[in-house]
Write a protein that binds this DNA or RNA. Structure first.
Lengths: 115, 115
DNA sequence: CTAGGACTTGAACTAATGGTGAAGTCAATG
DNA sequence: CATTGACTTCACCATTAGTTCAAGTCCTAG
């Protein structure tokens, strides 16, 4: 039951039309087709894209985001969005821990450069 | 007064010879040349590369690392390395804050997706 | 019914990122 | 001297995230 066109999803999510098509090709979102072969998206498409943009800020690649969003069923319920939220949070915290580890290595910098 | 060859710096820093040449091209390290046009590095070259590798873990690009290392004079003193250490630490902490900010945006996810 | 804006495809293109590889040259040693 | 390992340059590779283009098709308002 998709009703939204590429342009509508683009405006609703803040990305360009070419990006919307790109995200569909990459499997971040799915689309039904009209008789004339045009894409029609469900209302959650723009939501998925907004989540994807946040995930990019966390440092996930489009491929990783595909896998993340694959867990989200069509017609997602609040609990489903929550699950996504949790996994994204965990990933961000993992990356924060990696940065702290790098900081520790910097802290032991005497060993990096004892000229 | 460089005395180290590409291979020696490579072994001393744990990167490949091609990477050492790449880093010189990018301006992370500098080299004198022999009469036969070969590179000869100072003793601090391997140090600079070790710092660069840590900076990469922090998420800096080679271009940003060039700018970071540009602050390091030739014949650097302990205080110079310390300054680098401080800037790198600050940068890592800035990135950690960005991740926390992304987490906050995830936390307010009700606004991302109020279907 | 028709005009024209929105849509379709696929491939080529961009631009940054971080190197690697091939082909040929140099230098130190036995 | 000749070998052999290290060195040289420059072109190329692979990935990432899209954008752009051309040529054509759809769909909706008037």
């Amino acid at each position: 039951m998709g009703t939204l066109t590429v342009g509508e999803v683009a405006r609703g999510s803040g990305v360009s039309g070419s990006a919307v098509r790109f995200y569909e090709r990459q499997g971040l979102i799915t689309a039904a087709r009209t008789g004339g072969n045009q894409r029609r998206f469900d209302a959650d498409a723009a939501c998925r894209i907004r989540v994807a943009r946040v995930a990019q800020r966390v440092g996930l690649t489009v491929n990783e985001i595909r896998d993340l969003l694959a867990a989200l069923p069509s017609g997602p319920q609040p609990a489903d969005w929550q699950g996504l939220h949790d996994r994204l949070t965990a990933e961000a915290e993992r990356r924060i821990r990696d940065l702290h580890a790098a900081l520790d290595d910097i802290g032991s910098g005497r060993r990096l450069c004892d000229l």
